[in-house]
């Protein structure tokens, strides 16, 4: 191992970076509260240890009543709290869909802008390996279609912390999705508090031949494939939108203007995926920029199966990304 050098950055787990963001905001604003099932113990890990520092009223365990505690945040935010909810698993949003989509997302708009609802709904989400259909969903495509929810999907520990800070400071309902498999990934994260604006994407790897827009857990996959193709002389740019609502289409179009080719990799089912939306928008707004038909890489249109070979077949793989990139170059 190399000798230890003096640096501000430490390598920490993504889940710890989320926790640092939560801790900073609990410290910054006493109206911030964190609720959810077993947030005291925190099985997934983002809220671990917070109850010791902030007490059981600010880090509060709820009954298993997703619809109700998702909805309670609407009333609570309307009268001055800044609730942060740990849903634990992405598909649990479906249990609370009325309160999320009909209430939280719509109350400000329906009231003609009378009220701000600063709420964060965060959760671990997506396939994690044989978790089966009801614990492997990624709900972001569905939620993108609900006007009134901002959606954040960080891919690195650095982004996880900065976007948690921004999400909690934002005066709107924000859905914050942590792909399960990223929770145990390490990366450099500054110790101090910093924020990343919602709606600003990031070029994770510069390249000149093909733009690969990748979302959440698809980002490390796309980077791995890009590094492999470099040896063959194919230069891949990897763009991470980081937030899906609002979506940084300018950054994506700028990248496509440079490369002329587009692949979008989404860790979600193909139909009406974020990949579908991005490809459609680029086709409309940047048709003249494209030298080849854009490609989508996403899951098969089936629930995520349990058995490992079945799961592998239904989800996206490095070779799917590799093939899609080559298709745009053919």
């Amino acid at each position: 191992m190399a000798a230890k050098t003096v640096t501000e950055e430490r390598n920490i787990y993504y889940i710890e970076a989320m926790r640092e963001g939560l801790r900073a905001m609990l410290g910054e604003d006493e109206n911030v509260v964190v609720i959810g099932e077993d947030v005291g113990r925190s099985v997934i890990g983002a809220t671990r240890g917070l109850v010791e520092d902030f007490g059981p009223m600010r880090v509060r365990n709820t009954p298993i009543s997703e619809a109700t505690f998702v909805g309670m945040c609407v009333g609570a935010a309307a009268v001055g709290l800044r609730p942060v909810v740990d849903l634990m698993v992405g598909s649990f949003f479906y249990v609370a869909m009325d309160q999320l989509a009909d209430q939280a997302a719509k109350l400000r708009y329906m009231s003609g802008g009378q009220v701000n609802l600063p709420i964060v709904y965060f959760t671990a989400t997506g396939p994690s390996g044989s978790a089966a259909a009801q614990h492997s969903e990624n709900p972001h495509p569905m939620l993108m279609n609900v006007a009134g929810l901002k959606i954040v999907m960080p891919s690195t520990p650095y982004d996880a912390k900065g976007l948690m800070v921004s999400a909690i400071r934002d005066d709107n309902p924000v859905v914050y999705l942590q792909d399960f498999v990223l929770g145990g990934v390490r990366g450099p994260v500054p110790e101090g508090t910093y924020s990343i604006p919602l709606g600003v994407g990031d070029i994770k790897r510069a390249g000149k031949d093909v733009t690969v827009v990748a979302i959440g857990a698809a980002v490390p996959k796309a980077l791995r494939v890009a590094n492999k193709l470099e040896a063959e002389g194919i230069s891949v740019e990897v763009v991470d939108p980081r937030t899906l609502v609002p979506l940084d289409m300018d950054l994506i179009l700028e990248s496509v203007a440079r490369t002329g080719r587009l692949v979008v990799v989404d860790n979600a089912r193909l139909t009406c995926s974020a990949a579908s939306e991005i490809v459609a928008s680029v086709s409309e707004k940047g048709f003249d920029l494209l030298k080849a038909a854009p490609q989508r890489v996403a899951w098969e249109n089936v629930p995520v199966p349990f058995s490992p070979p079945l799961e592998e077949r239904a989800l996206i793989s490095d070779s799917d990304i590799d093939s899609a990139i080559r298709m745009t170059l053919a």
């Binding site: 009333g75 009268v79 709290l81």
Partner: peptide, 22 residues
């Protein structure tokens, strides 16, 4: 008045939430 509702029962958690916050 922190909400009226087109969804039957939709306001019950919201009012429970304002009570929690207060």
């Amino acid at each position: 008045i922190i909400g009226t509702n087109g969804i039957v029962g939709g306001g019950i958690p919201i009012g429970t939430g304002s009570a929690w916050a207060d």
